[in-house]
Design a binder for these strands. Structure first.
Lengths: 328, 328
DNA sequence: TTGAAAGCGCTAACAC
DNA sequence: GTGTTAGCGCTTTCAA
């Protein structure tokens, strides 16, 4: 079966292909009568414009590339949903690319992305390097970074000020005299943790103290839980801050095992919520990062750069600390 | 900045564009010497072939469309990872489309998918209707359905026999004299639940019994948990089977609230595991559906249909019942 | 072994 | 209002 083309429609409707083109693009110069003729032919033949040919002719594909770290769907899922919802509204397609730390870096995807001639690329990537950024920007393709404040010529970003969030939290605890505060490493989201540490460090400094409890998970431990169930045996904290709710859970489980009662003996807070936090007991106090919005706003910003030729800008989204059962 | 084209390379290398085309496509008729000249020009100019133009000329895009239900990333995440991993190996791009029950049905995506001229489409969709299938198959585009046994001309499927899994499980409990077994509805995965019910019904029938405990969640309850915490107050089961681990969790939480001890008073099993099952207490016994493989095999099957012109086929993947703390 | 030229399906001047 | 035609960047006969 041969795909029906614009020529077929033109012949069927007894008009030129230019007229058909005008009709499918909603040009208003076409006379109502011929427009109907063409529309009928289109329906009769089941014609669907070839986006590839349009892409070639127009030098634009109305599709964007989305790059996310592999195996991150539990927390990027909401971002993707937001992204896709507005992509759908604006009629953009999204091509999905994943990176794997140490195996499949961004640079490996760039080749494919550039060849595919997407109109823009949206990246949720942890600790994007300068090199990677300039590798990309040299193609002058609009970029939006989600989760990290970087902007410039045709590169925008949408993010939450995690440093501030953690600063405020830590400051509050220090004011209450609770000085044993720890932050736990998240191998899957280094840049977020970098911000957390900055916030804590600043809060400590403002109290004339030094923040030292960044818990790196030694390579020999496969999960945070494995590490913590050992570690908590002879360490005690007033508050532990994790990046994702799943890690907070690991902490809580490890605490239970060591007869540390949550939140009485120790409190736990996380930054990123997923829907699991609503199913789990105790529910973890969190910052309720607006993941869906992170995605939807990113795509909005992208289309604005694309269609209204807007400049790159940095957009900060706000968070809301939501106390639950893991804090007093 | 104008993008560099094959013409630019041809001029730079002092050959015809046909020769450049041969080089980038690895043709072996080109003399080593000229091949080097061309390759040098390509590197010097930073030329990247335009996949859109190639797509037009070749009538194939080396990209596929992936359709999944929105907001399903926690359990489709692994499938996507598997899918993308082999897509990357075979150099296929994947365009991501989501459906939303009642708002964005498959049929709404078909238009876009067909226009985008992908080479094939992979669908993880719950209870795909006949109408939707034929709407798609009429374009003669290769399809693979994941999670559902449907096959035909250029349509393949990759699935796990959930009916059998549940049959075996229920049969075992009935043999032990545990007759109060319930299955809980999963609005997000109707077809899986359909299979579960079939399996249970058959097992009951084989024991001369009738399966009746399919717990539908009335519309007024927002979550399974809301429903169950009421429901379990005056209902008791030997075993409750859920589709996803998150639902099993809801059941366990609701049970706790009603002073039903798991697994002593009631046992709980789920079909689909996510990584959260490893963080949660008690861990839920499950069937350990091979989600990653579901994705990777689907993509393999797709490329086989695409590149080796293979026929559609149905591939069954196996499961492994994994007892944990929610069963005796 | 290489080049010339037609064609992939569409858009957008430019004519009429 | 509508048609003609020259691209868009590439692949692939067909000749040379």
């Amino acid at each position: 079966m041969k795909r029906v083309t614009i020529y077929d429609v033109a012949r069927e409707a007894n008009v030129s292909l230019a007229t058909v083109s005008r009709v499918i693009n909603g040009s208003d110069v076409v006379k109502g009568n011929t427009k109907n003729k063409v529309q009928d032919a289109i329906n009769r033949l089941g014609y669907k414009p070839n986006a590839i040919a349009q892409g070639l002719a127009l030098q634009k594909t109305t599709s964007i590339a989305l790059v996310i770290p592999e195996a991150s769907f539990t927390y990027t899922g909401q971002i993707i949903n937001g992204l896709l919802d507005v992509a759908k509204i604006d009629k953009y397609n999204v091509m999905l690319h994943t990176t794997t730390e140490g195996i499949n870096e961004i640079s490996d995807s760039i080749e494919t992305i550039i060849k595919s001639r997407v109109d823009g690329v949206i990246i949720y990537n942890d600790r994007l390097t300068e090199a990677e950024m300039s590798e990309l920007t040299k193609y002058h393709i609009p970029i939006v970074i989600v989760g990290n404040k970087i902007s410039g010529n045709k590169v925008s970003s949408v993010f939450v000020d995690i440093e501030k969030a953690v600063y405020e939290l830590v400051d509050r605890y220090l004011n209450d005299g609770k000085k044993e505060i720890a932050i736990i490493q998240d191998r899957k989201n280094n840049s977020s943790v970098d911000s957390m540490i900055k916030g804590a460090t600043r809060a400590y400094a403002d109290h004339g103290l030094v923040f030292e409890n960044f818990l790196e998970i030694p390579a020999k431990f496969r999960t945070s839980y494995d590490f913590l169930s050992d570690y908590l045996a002879d360490h005690k904290f007033d508050l532990v801050i994790a990046n994702r709710d799943s890690q907070a859970l690991a902490i809580i489980n490890a605490a239970k095992e060591n007869n540390i009662s949550i939140p009485d003996d120790m409190e736990v807070v996380c930054i990123i919520d997923t829907k699991y936090n609503s199913m789990v007991r105790p529910q973890v106090s969190s910052f309720a990062i607006p993941s869906y919005d992170l995605g939807s706003v990113s795509m909005r910003v992208m289309t604005k750069m694309l269609e209204h030729d807007e400049e790159g800008k940095a957009i900060e989204l706000s968070y809301l600390f939501t106390p639950r059962k893991s804090t007093k």
